[in-house]
Design a protein around this nucleic acid. Structure first.
Lengths: 231, 231
DNA sequence: CGTACCTTTGATGTGAATCAAGAGTAGTGG
DNA sequence: CCACTACTCTTGATTCACATCAAAGGTACG
């Protein structure tokens, strides 16, 4: 099984365009770039397991990576599905802890591993980077808090509607078309549902005319109406 | 209803002993201390509501504060119950966002409000503080990830057992006694259960001899056995 | 000593999981 | 190009963990 595109990549230039690093002067980034390594993954390949020691964090160049909790009975719980330019593993890097989740390639993918040491040095040298890092972690925390709220306060239908609305482009238009970013199986796990239940909810929402489902393409004729559904 | 002890407090000395600030040289802390204000709360009083703007973060001096999601139907979901020396609200401070939860005093309490500006300045001046802040947020993130795992992968009984084991002193002794830090109602909400269900689980665990319940005092005759329960 | 809240217990209801099976849909190799 | 295999997705029947509803002790406190 061949892994992805074979072209050479310029680590320094990729890093400098990542949200986390845009404000950092290029000179300061050299250290980080020099110690970073690319890694290519075939679909289904593991990047790390739950419990592995954390020596740095990762940035996705292309492809998709899922973070999940393993489960002896096979039904793992997916925490996040991440795409290009997104990073993960920063938080564990600051504590002496192993990864609390596993990371697996959902498609062929390429990631950059950015080791701990140069990042710590960069934080010590560049306070605007430290602030960017804090803002990044804060955002992550915020969205996790939102997840906890979803799981504990909302029904399965409400969770799916919430997910669909999140995927909508932000414009105020009354209508939208969404291309699901990944399989319905994975989305079910993200929303803490079984695939069967997700399928039934899609059908029910379709039957009530709130959405149209064509494979991975979802049409929402009236966003406002969908937002107001309450059951 | 009188609010708590009336004694004067020395903000600077309290701040300097907080985990987050212990490594910061006292001179640098003056700024922060000078701009911080104490606030006393009666049991049941609101510190802030969900949606309020965040202008800083809070540290608890004494008493207990709960963070929760409000719910129109009255059954709110408690996210955390915090005690002395614990802080909250740091994350929102780094994003321009309102609080995603509400904060309410569970008992009479006193908190310190530490405004955003001097904290940002301290981060820019003292990198070890920036790292401490990052570590703090990382820990918070870690425990939230753990919560998500609990909610989605574990049964109500497993969640309660997990909670009890967490409360155990870390020593390797085979037995333990726990004083529940707050009402069973609140603990039920923390574990995403109704009070009725929590009560039943306590009874079931008691019946199987795994624990003994005497009001808020829980005795665990055999920690190892409790840890191995699997249902 | 009464009012308000916390906790327990029982009866009943229900949302979503599980079990089972069939219908697409896509990638593989002869 | 078609048969073969392996998923992914859908649909129906059944089950179960936990919530809800209802009511009765307990406990704390003004």
């Amino acid at each position: 099984m061949a892994v992805g595109k074979p072209e050479k990549i310029d680590i320094a230039s990729i890093i400098s365009r990542l949200p986390l690093f845009v404000e950092v002067p290029p000179a300061q980034l050299q250290h980080v770039a020099a110690e970073s390594r690319e890694r290519r993954l075939a679909k289904g390949e593991m990047l790390f397991h739950k419990g592995d020691p954390a020596r740095g964090f990762f940035v996705i160049i292309w492809g998709q990576i899922k973070l999940a909790f393993p489960s002896s009975t096979g039904n793992e719980k997916v925490v996040q599905v991440l795409g290009p330019r997104q990073s993960f593993g920063e938080a564990v890097m600051f504590m002496d802890r192993p990864y609390p989740v596993l990371a697996e390639a959902v498609s062929d993918a390429m990631v950059l591993h950015i080791p701990r040491k140069p990042v710590i040095e960069l934080i010590e040298r560049d306070t605007s980077f430290a602030l960017a890092m804090l803002a990044g972690l804060s955002t992550r925390l915020h969205s996790l808090v939102h997840d906890v709220e979803s799981y504990s306060l909302r029904s399965s239908t409400q969770r799916l509607i919430g997910y669909l609305l999140q995927q909508c482009p932000a414009e105020g238009k009354g209508t939208a078309e969404i291309e699901l970013p990944t399989s319905k199986q994975l989305i079910a796990s993200l929303l803490n549902l079984t695939p069967e239940t997700l399928s039934r909810i899609f059908r029910d929402l379709g039957d009530s005319g709130l959405i149209e489902v064509h494979g991975r393409l979802i049409k929402i004729p009236d966003i406002a109406r969908l937002r107001e559904v309450d059951f």
